[in-house]
């Protein structure tokens, strides 16, 4: 549903962009649910700015797309493990936080996060967040799993799936008891690698896209995996597949997406109108409704969410938020992590 809507919006935006250019058009490079017509259309009507969206499939798409040549995109939404790279690559410019109403409503934990600030200036505006939670098929478990050990359980051989991402290293490290997952030593990474190799024969498939994971559950191929909290589980619920998300004893990673302004954008005016909208109730509840993700602006969330949604999305749950190991830029350790994961896949 959201996918279809998103595509339609994209098409309409593409078709109308020619005429709208004169008034101000912003090109955003973002995730599919982040430019949904449910909030983009009202924005276009009130602001007079047209929004032209291009979608990415993963965080790895931002750098190549921006490297390909400048002047195309005005706004991007990389996740917190990629924002620092954008800054270091010089693709984005500092934000004028004073021009963004609602900035003060953002959870302090997010504003304090590594990767969106440099030299005292903010480069990213926290937008939405969630957990890399775990998920299981209700019908396959009598006692619900509560630990990562379930993903290494021989009983579930051939029914396990894991995200095809360096995140797999984080998962294995936690299973090994190494909780400082973003600062692992070489030995700890090697141990995580070994755990993943031991797990490999039990794995049915490493999932690469949200749709793929949904298909795997639907086709009865897997019963337990990690997941983008709120997203695949709602897609599965819509398909009538009963799954439950859980945060294991070993904790879960948390992610946070931020809006960043591409350096030297000529559409600064519209870009800031857009940022304001996204941080307002319209954008914050919009993204929560469309994707099932939590909102970064606590005050806006409180104002526009129902009580159930508010608690379901853990908006007022400091313990939950604190239990999440929010992604952190890996800097020059990045290569070691990805290489370790690639070596596991190569085996």
């Amino acid at each position: 549903m959201t996918i279809k809507k998103g595509i339609t919006a994209g098409c309409i935006a593409a078709l109308t962009s020619g005429a709208a250019w004169a008034e101000g058009t912003i090109n955003v490079l973002t995730w599919e649910g982040y430019a949904d017509p449910s909030f983009i259309t009202p924005f276009e009507e009130t602001s007079g700015c047209k929004v032209n969206a291009t979608y990415v499939g993963s965080n790895d798409d931002f750098a190549p797309k921006l490297m390909a040549g400048g002047g195309v995109y005005d706004l991007i939404t990389p996740s917190i493990d990629t924002t620092q790279l954008m800054i270091d690559l010089g693709f984005v410019e500092p934000l004028d936080t004073a021009a963004i109403t609602g900035w003060d409503g953002i959870y302090p934990k997010f504003l304090a996060q590594d990767g969106i600030q440099q030299d005292g200036a903010y480069y990213g505006m926290p937008y939405s967040w969630g957990a890399i939670a775990f998920m299981y098929l209700d019908s396959a478990f009598d006692t619900p799993p509560s630990s990562l050990d379930a993903l290494w359980s021989e009983d579930l051989a051939g029914k396990i799936s894991l995200w095809d991402d360096k995140s797999a290293i984080y998962v294995a490290a936690r299973k090994n008891g190494d909780m400082d997952i973003y600062n692992l030593t070489d030995d700890q990474i090697a141990a995580a690698q070994d755990s993943l190799l031991a797990q490999k024969p039990l794995v049915r498939k490493y999932w690469a896209t949200a749709g793929e994971l949904v298909d795997l559950y639907k086709a009865g191929e897997v019963v337990i995996s990690n997941t983008w909290a709120g997203y695949q589980s709602s897609l599965l619920a819509a398909e009538g597949v009963a799954v439950t998300e859980f945060i294991p004893e070993e904790g879960a990673e948390g992610w946070m997406d931020s809006w960043m302004v591409v350096k030297d954008t000529p559409n600064k005016d519209c870009a800031y109108k857009f940022l304001n909208m996204q941080l307002s109730e319209l954008g914050q509840c919009g993204v929560a409704n469309v994707n099932g993700y939590s909102a970064a602006n606590a005050s806006a969330a409180k104002a526009c969410m129902t009580a159930e949604q508010y608690s379901a999305l853990h908006q007022d749950d400091p313990d939950y938020l604190d239990s999440l190991l929010i992604w952190t830029p890996l800097g020059d350790r990045f290569e070691t992590y990805t290489n370790a994961w690639n070596a596991v896949k190569a085996q």
Partner: peptide, 8 residues
């Protein structure tokens, strides 16, 4: 992967 995720 090298052109994407690994940025190598």
């Amino acid at each position: 992967t090298q052109f994407g995720a690994a940025l190598n």
